[in-house]
């Protein structure tokens, strides 16, 4: 008799855990590091990625200039970028203003408002690099491994 409420409670708890897990799965999306198809690099370390995104490293192997392509606005990719660099939006803007002023960078990153434009920019600039949500990876982008790991790819449905 006493075991019934306990088991019912256990059921509720299990249900809550399962629903919460599925909710997180739906909410969190992996971010991939994508480059132009012609880029010979296959992988980066997190430290290298930070150096590239902060313009400390400005050329790829072979001397092709890095062209950073970022999403504007409040996209997930942009938030990830700011998190990676430990900067607020305001800090990021000021950082790039200073980099150009000091001659440490020739220009600020290309800021594009949509995934489609980010994809086209990556295709145009041979040194292009962008952070892209895994679900938005399309043919024509090359995904780099990060610290030896590739992001969990979602298989194309068609």
């Amino acid at each position: 008799m006493r075991t019934l409420p306990k088991i019912a409670l256990l059921n509720c708890m299990l249900l809550c855990v399962l629903l919460h897990a599925s909710f997180l799965k739906a909410q969190s999306t992996d971010i991939a590091v994508a480059v132009n198809l012609k880029n010979p690099v296959n992988g980066l370390t997190m430290a290298e990625l930070r150096k590239i995104l902060s313009a400390e490293k400005r050329t790829w192997a072979g001397g092709v200039p890095v062209v950073i392509i970022v999403r504007s606005g409040t996209s997930h990719e942009r938030q990830t970028l700011l998190h990676l660099l430990h900067m607020s939006e305001s800090d990021y803007k000021e950082y790039w203003r200073a980099q150009v002023f000091r001659g440490e960078a020739s220009a600020e990153p290309i800021a594009v408002p949509s995934n489609g434009m980010q994809r086209e920019a990556l295709a145009i600039y041979s040194g292009g690099i962008a952070l892209v949500e895994v679900q938005d990876i399309k043919p024509g982008m090359k995904v780099l491994s990060l610290d030896g790991h590739l992001p969990e790819m979602i298989q194309p449905t068609r």
Binding site: W96, E108, A121, Y125
Partner: peptide, 11 residues
């Protein structure tokens, strides 16, 4: 449609 490398946030 793709901004050139000179397109900037501040400049």
């Amino acid at each position: 449609a793709v901004p050139s490398p000179e397109t900037a946030n501040n400049f």
